[in-house]
Design a binder for these strands. Structure first.
Lengths: 156, 156
DNA sequence: CAGAGGTAGTTGACACATCACCTAAAACGA
DNA sequence: TCGTTTTAGGTGATGTGTCAACTACCTCTG
């Protein structure tokens, strides 16, 4: 490692601001969803993906891909959600290794009940404070950084 | 809850991009720090704050305030870091309730060793891909959103 | 100086994430 | 067809984060 290029002032401010925003925003969104709907952001993400798909059913690996989660994370999370009746596992008849994750009616109700409050919170805490230009800037930043992250990931 | 205002296309793109960037970036930064230096981002944050302070020592509540963490989180984390010898607890002689968290030499070495690689990763994955304007935009966004978040928090 | 109330910190229970490893069922090639 | 490899998914251990409840100590007021 050659002499590191420390962050200059502007970089420092941007980075620390971003980190702090990110962590607080996450915490608040989680808290709102949890207290108002007894769901975590992760539960919500899983349910969203299942609700957007025919039969409300995806294989574990598809879910992992859609969510950009590791399969083990999906598996653990599905186990917990299954315990609460939000989803259930169904074995695949044609491939003995495979398992479907199916959203139950209870899961559907949960997300229907949670979605409006969640969107509202996302707006209140984030979207509605930003101008159209800022949204565009953010989208661009996310795009660039994600490209870099994906790139880096492949290289591994 | 009146009819929710769902996100329009641009908002959707910005929001989803941000969420995804945020989660992947976090994961990668954590992974790099972990594999190269056996530290988590949280460990790193604690050590940074301790290293910037006289005696490398802060009371738990000061640490909590500096990091914007709950005191319970600090307590748990300090326990884990203490187990690894990165910090130690010292009772306060003047206030029997209080405890100091002091960075050990081992902790100092750990952060000295970790910092260059971490900054480098932050640059590679994030900062260096962004223009000065983008950094300024990001700082502004973070500022606005944080103001809103703090505001919301007080209100509670 | 008693005791009411606040403050500093810890603890236990639980949810979450990651890692390394494991099992079983395909798929495939000699 | 047999044995190897790949693929789908699950498991256990460990570290992390949150909440609610708790202990011990300080402080302040009558």
């Amino acid at each position: 490692m050659t002499d590191p290029r420390w962050l200059d002032d502007a970089e420092q401010r941007a980075w620390r601001g971003y980190v702090r925003m990110q962590s607080k925003l996450n915490a608040q969104l989680n808290r709102q969803l949890q207290t108002d709907s007894q769901l975590s952001l992760s539960d919500f993400a899983v349910l969203v993906h299942l609700s957007e798909v025919p039969d409300r059913s995806l294989r574990v690996s598809q879910l992992a891909q859609a969510l950009h989660w590791e399969k083990s994370r999906v598996s653990h999370h599905v186990t917990r959600m299954e315990r609460r009746g939000l989803v259930k596992r169904v074995e695949c008849p044609t491939d003995g290794r495979s398992a479907f994750v199916v959203m139950t009616d209870c899961g559907q109700n949960a997300i229907d009940a949670a979605a409006p409050g969640h969107v509202d919170t996302v707006r209140r805490l984030f979207i509605d404070d930003l101008t159209a230009d800022q949204l565009k800037a953010l989208e661009a930043i996310a795009g660039q950084v994600l490209a870099r992250l994906d790139d880096e990931e492949c290289r591994t």
